[in-house]
Design a protein around this nucleic acid. Structure first.
Lengths: 228, 228
DNA sequence: TCGGCCATACTTGGATCCAATCAAGGAGGA
DNA sequence: TCCTCCTTGATTGGATCCAAGTATGGCCGA
């Protein structure tokens, strides 16, 4: 019995490999919400047959990134404003809990790295870079959580809302993003103080504020639904 | 363009059909945690080939009911005590939110039905009947929630912990279950009063108490892990 | 000219076949 | 006697092939 080789996708797991690649494509915006996905296209693109592609679609369906309709096809999942608000309300409750799992295990090096991310974020005007740093920062605060379910779920919630977060970030100016930076600094400060409860409160408020902001931009969700 | 046929599993979705059947088997205890699942067995049992079976396993893997190891096999998922506590903490935060979505839409007929379930629960000594009624009751309070993600997630959390809830319920006497009945009555009463916030508090306390009870029975999780 | 119907092409779904991988059991040697 | 290595069986993974369903385009009729 060899030891588990970890997340390295070795031969014998083409389904997961295709899923990872397609997930990355959706998160980076190469595949837009509502876009049709043809199995054979993916198979050709990744040099696999349609069998693992179908498995990959099944995986991503349950991650909320793909919508499958039997005998009809697959589309990149779309969200309505109501669904997006729902996810943000879930995050509002779950991420403080996840932070509570993680905070006691964050060492000074972690905190320095988080502070570095937060500062780089404050000095960038590029939307994609900002999004990437934002994600790195928040998930970074959760990295030391020894959870098996909660961490994955939170990442999943981030993933499904990512395309809309990108559209939103583009639509607002760089100035409007400054508030997020202040909140990030507050989180790092609370974590340095060892005041986990305060950090939890700031995270919850951060998510709540973002949700309200999103609600003021319903047009972001008025994409043409190719899904019937 | 025909309208979406809904959750009816018609021809052309054997993967989902197998997944539903296997899920039911796990929830009813026919497949115990840690039990090996052979693809060909399932295929033969459900009269399908191994292709849809593999899809079903992928689905259930992401529902947390099955553990897959590449090139090795599939097992009914097992939980450690720590993982179970983690899930209960998640439920503690999510179910009050879900109840808040549902409560305003519950009509008097729903409440009567819930009260009926709660009373039948108080008068049964059969463990399986109790578990079924308990599940019906709680999910019944959430049934009117117009959510797309949260409801499914909560049901998923119920499913993954179901085998251990069964073992726990068996291990305690009928008397120890009475407290749950009182809490259920409180929930119905709060809902009748239109006091959603109070109902949320009772649900949270109910889950929290159950989590503490489970923590006192670590032996329930000391099953032989067939998974290497 | 517009609407409905039908046939055709395309896409997805499922089954069978073959290759690759892993686990177990036995043989051989120290 | 115990450890190691190798062989063999069983099971999973992937590809190709065929069937079934759906959507699109053209044709006919009103």
């Amino acid at each position: 019995m060899t030891i588990d080789p970890g997340p390295r996708t070795r031969g014998g797991d083409a389904g997961a490999r295709v899923a990872n690649a397609l997930r990355a494509g959706i998160l980076t915006g190469q595949f837009a919400p509502g876009a049709r996905i043809r199995q054979e296209d993916l198979a050709e693109r990744f040099g696999a047959s349609r069998v693992p592609v179908r498995e990959a679609l099944r995986i991503l369906e349950h991650e909320g990134l793909v919508t499958l309709v039997a005998n009809t096809g697959a589309w990149v999942a779309t969200l309505t404003l109501a669904e997006c608000e729902e996810i943000y309300r879930m995050r509002e409750r779950l991420e403080p809990l996840l932070l509570a799992y993680s905070a006691p295990n964050l060492d000074p090096g972690d905190l320095d790295r988080l502070q570095g991310l937060s500062e780089r974020m404050a000095h960038t005007d590029d939307v994609d870079a900002f999004l990437e740093l934002d994600r790195e920062f928040h998930l970074g605060t959760y990295r030391r959580a020894r959870t098996t379910q909660l961490g994955e779920l939170v990442e999943k919630l981030w993933n499904t809302t990512q395309p809309y977060r990108r559209a939103y970030t583009r639509s607002i100016g760089p100035d409007a993003r400054r508030i997020a930076n202040d909140e990030h600094h507050l989180i790092v400060a609370a974590l340095r103080d060892g005041d986990t409860e305060d950090a939890e409160r700031v995270v919850a408020a951060h998510i709540r504020r973002t949700r309200r902001q999103l609600s003021r931009h319903p047009h972001l969700f008025e994409t043409i639904r190719e899904v019937p």
